[in-house]
Structures are given as C-alpha cells and as structure tokens.
Design a protein around this nucleic acid. Structure first.
Length: 319
DNA sequence: AACGGTGTCAACCGCAGCATA
DNA sequence: ATATGCTGCGGTTGACACCGT
C-alpha cells in the first residue's frame, strides 16, 4: 500500500523532475517555538488542560495561546505538568521493578511506565540508559537481553541450537534440553506454564481451571517461594544455566485494571473468538490463583508475557 | 579561573497504529 | 479499500550541570 503523505511531509520536485517525499519537523514552521519551556508557557498549558481536558493536541496550542506544536504540548504535559507525575530520584524498589519489567518487556517504556505509578516512559527510558544499562554491563550482563555478556563457551548446547536462536516452541526447547519457565502465546490460544514437565495445557480458557488440575506438588512447592513478596526467587530446570529470577511485587499493587492488562479495546476484541465467553481478565486470573495459594508470581510473569504476545510479539518470554 | 570530558534529562524527530471520512 | 489526520511510542539529540585537571 502506498504510504500516505503525513501532516509533516510534503512532495518536492527534484532537479531531475522526480517527486521526492520530504519530512518536515512539526516544529519547523515559522513562529513555532522550540526548546525548553518557560514557566509562563507551563502555566498556559496547565490551565488549559485542567479546564478543557487532555487530547486534541493539534488544536490546543492555538486555543491555549501557545506558540508550540501540539506534540510538544502533549509531551510537556505528559512528562512534566501532569499532577500525578512523581518527582525525585528513582527509589530502589522502583529500580528493581524497572529491571524486572524490562527483562520481560524489553524497551517498551510506555508499558513499563504504566506499571510504575508517577513515572513517565521518558523518565524510565532516561534512567535505564544512564544508570541501569551501565549497571548491568558492569555486572557482566547484557542489558538488551539480560543474559551474561560472555556466555559459557563450554556449553553443551550445539552452536546451531544456541540460546540466541529464536525458540520456536516448548517442544523445541525440550529438544535442545533448554529448560524454560513460562510460555505464552496469544491469550486466545493455549496458555502454558511449564518446565521440564508440563504443568498444564488447555485449549479453552485454560488459566483458571488449570490451577486445580494436575500440578506437580513438588514443583509447585519449589516454585512457591515468593508468595507475592518482593525478592522471592525460584528456579526451574537445570542448574547450569541462568534460571534464577526474581518474583514480582505484590500483585494487588500491580494489577488492578478491569481490562486485559495493557490492551486497548480493539486488541481485546481481536483475541476474542465468536460465540465464546469473554476471556477472564488478568486481574481475575491472578486473584483466583492467589486465592488458591498457587504461585501467583509465575502467573504474573506469564500474564505479562501473554500480554506482550497479544501486542504482537511471538514466542515471548521464554526465560 | 579556564578548559575539556562526562553525565543527566528535557525535548525533538520519525515512524507506526488507529480512527475516521 | 484507500486516504488522511491524530496520537503515542521509542530512539536520539543537545543544552546544561558537574567534575577533574
């Protein structure tokens, strides 16, 4: 499909007579101000948004009496002027949460920020780039994938089946002898939480019934150290590889939406099959699992992975 | 005091997804 | 089905602060 010419693009004719699409920055128009915001501008913007609400950013500057582009106004409001924006240093528990979420979600700063009250995606991204990535590197960990920077060269896994190869399925992982903790494809599809042996595998709304069925007690016990507390850790699979990872914060503080986490309406509709009951939302899933004293940390991880899958990633979070 | 290197972070840019006509 | 406009996201930039020499 031919890409449309956007608001910031224009067609110019080259010396050879060819039409060339050029990009014009939104703030390059004459009379549009760039650079740091003044207190006066902040006041104008804040007053306008408080009165009229967020949105309609394109027309906002003119109405608010600002010589800024809409994008700039939105950014200023979202990252600085919003009342809920938290100021000050990132606390150690916030840092810990950023690390854990990044391990699952990668550079999805907006998603990560959505789980850390008062922090913006820009702030988290900056903090990651200036602090955390360097910290991980100094610890010998690759900040992109949270794996050791110098993997053990004596690994028994053949080169063509190494960890960098994209895992194709649980079966694939079993084949190469690489234990795994969580698998999650689309929410509408099979939802697995497994290791060397399969804990459960259902094709229809598998999450809740699975809690009651066929879970290996010893394994569940092994998993069950976090209980939703910070700093709990568990390990699945072979001991030779990096299989220890921390559990997550208390779910009640993290999961309180009534929608599928992180999904907009359209994405939720996409995953629903016709003539099928609505999928249980993650909060319900987690509540049930927590109530039944099962390892809710694992569910949280699976949930995040599953959501990432719902957002378009395939085979995410084989950790 | 002057200078250069480094760190921090607000802001900008380009792009993609979504809604709507 | 396609075009268009708006919004939000992630990568990058650049101004400023800080520090060591």
């Amino acid at each position: 499909m031919k890409k449309a010419i956007t608001e910031h693009e224009s067609l110019v004719t080259s010396s050879a007579g060819l039409k060339i699409k050029t990009t014009t920055p939104c703030c390059s128009k004459v009379g549009i101000k760039k650079g740091p915001w003044t207190p006066e501008e902040d006041e104008l913007l804040a007053n306008y948004v408080k009165k009229e609400g967020e949105g309609r950013w394109r027309t906002l500057p003119k109405k608010a009496g600002l010589l800024r582009c809409g994008k700039s106004c939105r950014l200023r409001w979202m990252n600085y002027l919003r009342p809920c924006v938290k100021r000050g240093r990132i606390a150690p528990d916030e840092e810990d949460l950023i690390l854990r979420l990044h391990r699952l979600l990668g550079n999805r700063w907006a998603l990560i920020a959505g789980r850390i009250p008062g922090r913006t995606d820009n702030e988290i991204k900056n903090y990651w780039n200036t602090h955390l990535s360097k910290k991980l590197i100094s610890q010998g960990i690759d900040p992109r994938n949270h794996k050791p920077l110098n993997p053990n060269p004596t690994s028994s896994i053949p080169q063509h089946l190494n960890q960098n190869a994209a895992p194709k399925s649980a079966k694939y992982l079993e084949e190469i002898g690489r234990p795994y903790r969580v698998t999650a494809t689309k929410l509408s599809q099979t939802f697995n939480l497994t290791t060397d042996q399969q804990l459960y595998n259902h094709d229809h709304h598998p999450q809740i019934p699975a809690v009651n069925e066929g879970i290996d007690n010893s394994l569940a016990t092994g998993l069950h150290s976090g209980q939703g507390q910070i700093n709990g850790e568990y390990c699945i699979g072979n001991e030779n590889e990096d299989h220890i990872f921390s559990s997550f914060l208390d779910l009640d503080s993290l999961i309180n939406e009534n929608e599928y986490l992180f999904m907009n309406q359209q994405q939720q509709q996409k995953i629903q099959q016709p003539n099928q009951e609505p999928l249980p939302n993650m909060a319900q899933v987690f509540s049930v699992s927590a109530a039944q004293n099962f390892n809710n940390t694992a569910f949280w991880e699976a949930g995040v992975a599953s959501i990432a899958a719902g957002l378009g990633d395939e085979e995410v979070a084989f950790i």
